[in-house]
């Protein structure tokens, strides 16, 4: 009996709850926003700035754009790393324990609709249509252990509350990723891989480049890659990727 009460006490002490969010009331957004890489931690959707820190999501109303108003915050017990907006109503948060999918249909109010757990790792996430693409990378600041899980995962999110794993492909330490039309680019240890995702149910690797990259913006022209070396401006044609210019670190 005494033992039991002790366990209960310990359990309640160790329990962490995701707190609810508050309310925002803004007019629908205009979309004067740009585009960031897949490792971003700030994003703007529906005239709200959404930021992630280690364990906290914050929402700021931009109805007075020069003076953002902090309207909501909620905690998660897992470490968040990346945030990716899809359209005007969906947010993907890459954590070191899985991907959180959030609904933003009511302006300023984020609601978790699904959590796709996976091995402990770093995992940026991007999405297009009814599919989301996640990379898992082990080691170095991505969890305590090296678990040798290094993968690109494709999920069908047609039923967003129940994402289904479609494919997992082993890649040597993948990191940032981005989509241009039917091409998915994945930064990895030895460069960049290009996948044809016109049929997301069976994606195919079409090219492998030695361009070094940590993260990228694929949807723009030129595409932009980052690496320790600097910022690469890269064009995509039928012949593949061609580096147009590099802004070198130190320049």
């Amino acid at each position: 009996m005494r033992h039991l009460s002790y366990k209960t006490l310990m359990a309640s002490l160790l329990m962490v709850v995701i707190q609810g969010c508050y309310q925002g009331n803004d007019t629908p957004a205009n979309s004067g926003t740009g585009i960031g890489g897949s490792t971003a931690r700030f994003t703007i959707q529906k005239n709200h700035l959404i930021t992630i820190e280690n364990h906290q999501v914050k929402v700021f109303s931009l109805s007075q754009p020069m003076t953002p108003v902090h309207i909501a915050a909620f905690d998660t017990r897992i470490t968040m790393e990346t945030i990716f907006p899809q359209g005007e109503e969906r947010i993907f948060i890459g954590t070191n324990d899985g991907t959180i999918i959030m609904d933003h249909s009511e302006t300023g109010i984020l609601q978790e609709v699904a959590f796709v757990s996976h091995f402990r790792s770093c995992d940026p996430v991007v999405a297009q249509g009814n599919y989301m693409y996640v990379t898992l990378r082990d080691g170095n600041g991505c969890g305590v252990f090296t678990n040798n899980v290094n993968q690109l995962m494709v999920f069908d999110i047609t039923d967003v509350q129940h994402p289904e794993l479609v494919t997992q492909i082993n890649i040597n330490r993948p990191y940032g990723l981005g989509i241009q039309d039917s091409n998915l680019f994945v930064c990895y240890a030895n460069g960049v891989q290009q996948y044809d995702i016109s049929d997301p149910q069976s994606i195919e690797k079409v090219a492998d480049y030695s361009t070094e990259c940590d993260d990228l913006i694929a949807a723009t022209s030129p595409m932009i890659f980052t690496s320790k070396e600097g910022i690469h401006l890269v064009s995509l044609s039928d012949n593949g990727l061609t580096e147009q210019a590099i802004i070198r670190a130190g320049d």
């Binding site: 740009g34 490792t39 993260d215 932009i224 980052t226 910022i231 070198r248 670190a249």
Partner: peptide, 18 residues
């Protein structure tokens, strides 16, 4: 001003932020 430690990137129209 040289770029010392490249970090995140953001594209907005013809302008690139690093």
């Amino acid at each position: 001003s040289p770029l010392v430690r490249p970090g995140k990137i953001y594209a907005h129209g013809q302008t690139l932020y690093v």
